[in-house]
Each structure stands twice: as C-alpha cells, then as structure tokens.
Design a protein around this nucleic acid. Structure first.
Lengths: 101, 101
DNA sequence: TTGATAGGCAAGCCGCCACTTGCCTATGGT
DNA sequence: ACCATAGGCAAGTGGCGGCTTGCCTATCAA
C-alpha cells in the first residue's frame, strides 16, 4: 500500500508469526515466499502452510513494512523500517532518559 | 506484571482504543478510571462502558505500559514507556540510513 | 507441449478478543 | 446508620483474524 496508517502497522505487528517474518527479512533481504516458508519451518520450527505465510506477507505489505519485487515467477520480499520509526515516536516525544543536559 | 514479554506489548498496542488511552495518559499522568472514561468519551467521542476501559487498562498494565497506584477509593494510572523503547530496536539494529561512511 | 515450480484466489472453519450485562466490594460523605 | 461514588468479578455474546483446503494462473525446463 502507498498510504499505510499507523493502525495497519500496529495490526501487522500484533501477530507473532509476522514478527518472525520480519526477523527473517531483517537478517536476509530479497527472499521469496518459499524461502521464507522453509526458513520459518527449519529454523523456528513452526509448521505453517504456504498460504498462511502468503497472507501474512500481504498484511505486512499493506502496512508498508514489506515491499515486494516481481521477477519472473519469483517474488522477492524486502523489509522496510520506515513505518516503525514513525509509530514509535508517538509516546516517546517528551524525553529520552538522558536528553536533559 | 513484573515480567512483560514483547508479545504482551505488541498485543496491547494492537487495539486502537488502548492506543487512545496511551495518548491520554501521555498528555496527563495520574488519571483515574473515571477520568479516562470521560475524556475518551468527550474528547475522542467513542462510547465505551467503564468495564471496557477497565479491561483495556488491565491489558496495558500486564504489558508493563501502565502502572497503577491505589489511593483510597481511587486508582491512578501512569504511562510507562520502557517497554516501547525495548521493542522498537528489534528491527532497527543494523543501520540508520546514512550510518555507512 | 508437457510437466514441474512459484504463487494467487476464494470459501470455510474455529478460536480469540473486545464489549456488554449484572451483580458485588470498598471507601467517603452526611 | 445510610447512600453515593469508584472500582472489581464473572459469565455471555458477536465479530474479526489466522489458518486450512481446493482449485486456478503464470513462468521455466525438458
């Protein structure tokens, strides 16, 4: 999605599986759906269908946390952290703990 | 709760009403349940029962985002931002965009 | 062209979560 | 003593979200 509201970002982050996907994309970019599937199964040991992951990626993408690039029959996914940086400042405005000189 | 997992924090942030409550507590500390209720109704225009807000506060408290202090028949609620600061660094670790020289 | 790979679409099931409702406890005022 | 206020507890309900299942399209290799 072009315009991702904060609601979408929080909703996307609410699910632990989606956070795992973000973890996976954080340490390796440009992964296809199948790569993400196999990695989630092997490394994190969670058994999910391909469609489940696909739907999770759709949610992450509509939140602006993931962008996808189509190439042939592959679709590569990349993490975007901008939405995160925008939402966290919401309640942290007044003071970082040692910002007062 | 003493030990709040990241899961609890994300789950607490998933609901828009709970984020409104955090907004309210961010701009005014030490509010009672009734104060929060009336403010949410008047300022933000959402009609919710007292119990709904109470349950939301319980979720926020179990996530460590809110602490409560009992005094007489009043219970004052205060925002805590530490859990937020802990969870946001999860995917922002490697680089701020121009950290590479 | 045939088959295999990578992915999409749509309907359906099920559990969780937000919210309500009703009743109960405790503190404060008079 | 009384009543009103501030809040808690517990059961019940409706809807949304995560996951599956089945079938379909598109790309590449032989």
């Amino acid at each position: 999605m072009v315009l991702a509201m904060a609601d979408d970002v929080f909703k996307a982050l609410a699910d632990p599986t989606r956070r795992r996907i973000l973890d996976e994309l954080a340490e390796r970019d440009d992964q296809t759906l199948f790569e993400i599937c196999t990695r989630l199964v092997t490394k994190h040991g969670l058994g999910l269908s391909r469609q489940a992951i696909s739907q999770h990626l759709a949610v992450l993408e509509s939140a602006g946390l993931v962008v996808s690039r189509r190439q042939g029959r592959y679709k590569f996914h990349t993490l975007k952290t901008e939405p995160l940086e925008r939402i966290v400042t919401r309640w942290l405005r007044p003071d970082t703990p040692e910002s007062t000189p």
